[in-house]
Structure formats: C-alpha cells, structure tokens
C-alpha cells in the first residue's frame, strides 16, 4: 500500500495533470516527486500538503479524495 502522500499526489495528477502537481508542490513547499510510495510519510510534509489541498481541489474533489484515503 502506497503512503498517503503518494496517493494524494496520484489523485491530483489524475484530476489536474502535471500542472496540478506542480501547483501542489509550489503551494505546500513539499517536493512530492522526491517521496517514494514506500517511504514513510514525513509528518510535517503531510501536514503542509493537506493544508494546500483546499486551494487546488473543489469541495467535491476533496470529499472524493478523503473517501479514497479512508478506504485504503
């Protein structure tokens, strides 16, 4: 099972393409591309990523993402 950051990144990439992932990196300051799916989630990076998501995703997309994360 991939870590939470990788699953968030995969969701953003699917919905918003590479441009969306680049915006996520810019807004959070977390280079998500450097975090492998099997790495442990760095807590501070995960917190910053989750804080940035509302600027990128609609309420519906956020809800869908939360659902996907909770199912895993």
């Amino acid at each position: 099972m991939a870590n939470r950051i990788s699953r968030i990144t995969a969701y953003v990439e699917k919905r918003k393409l590479g441009f969306g992932v680049a915006r996520l990196i810019m807004m959070s300051g977390v280079n998500v591309r450097s975090i492998g799916p099997n790495d442990p989630d760095p807590p501070d990076a995960l917190r910053r990523l989750e804080q940035a998501l509302p600027q990128l995703l609609s309420a519906q997309e956020l809800s869908e993402l939360q659902q996907l994360l909770s199912e895993a």
Binding site: E13, L17, G18, F19, V21, A22
Partner: peptide, 18 residues
C-alpha cells in the same frame, strides 16, 4: 520554468514536465 511551459493553447505539463 516553474509549473509548465506556456503556449497559446494553455499550460503544457501533462504529468512528467515539459
């Protein structure tokens, strides 16, 4: 460049950069 390459059709960065 940050974010992607800009073209008259929009931003190009499908997933792996540009």
């Amino acid at each position: 460049t940050s974010l992607g390459v800009l073209t008259a059709a929009g931003v190009r960065n499908e997933g792996h950069g540009a």
